[in-house]
């Protein structure tokens, strides 16, 4: 992690990101808002899907239709957030790669993606519509996915707070 931070520190990516953040008027709040809107799409797609599997939301929508329809939205939102988030990481790589919460966020993100892919795979099985939807393993995966995506979203906010609490300016 630290090696990655040192590699990016002083690289051309840093000067480009810092230039954009400090010279384009309103760039930091605009990019941060784009990042939050990406999280909103995560909520509207995979979190709603998880809530559906748990029997808590959108009862008239059915799997696998729901998964097939919403998954592309999730992937585009993640791609968009990778871009919007990278401006801040490239601008201050040492801060991020030395920050334990940034590492946790990465772990949560990769786990969330893995569990989500598993749910999508299960939802496409031929027998899913008949009994798979109520299967306990699917519900457990949906609950895990829900928790992980919320941790990913919260992680971003806590990266800044950990820095504030533990790293003197």
């Amino acid at each position: 992690m630290t090696a990655m931070g040192q590699f990016l520190d002083g690289a051309m990516s840093q000067s480009m990101a810092l230039w954009a953040l400090s010279n384009i008027p309103g760039f930091p709040p605009i990019i941060q808002s784009a990042h939050i809107l990406g999280i909103a799409v995560v909520m509207g797609s995979i979190v709603m899907l998880d809530l559906r599997i748990l029997g808590l939301a959108v009862p008239s929508q059915q799997l696998p239709e729901m998964a097939n329809r919403l998954m592309p939205w999730l992937w585009w939102a993640l791609a968009s957030n990778l871009v919007s988030g990278s401006f801040f990481v490239f601008a201050r790589p040492l801060r991020y790669f030395n920050n334990p919460v940034f590492g946790w966020k990465a772990v949560f993100l990769l786990s969330a993606i893995a569990v989500t892919l598993l749910i999508h795979f299960w939802s496409r099985q031929p027998d899913f519509a008949s009994h798979g939807r109520t299967a306990i393993k699917v519900k457990a995966a949906a609950l895990l996915s829900l928790g992980l995506w919320i941790m990913v979203a919260m992680g971003g906010r806590w990266i800044a707070y950990v820095e504030y609490l533990y790293y003197p300016a």
Partner: peptide, 21 residues
Amino acid sequence: FPFIESIHVITIAMVVGSILF
């Protein structure tokens, strides 16, 4: 404060995400 702010971000994402579709 940080706890409340993180709940605020999550719930706003839910506000926008639920009305989005």
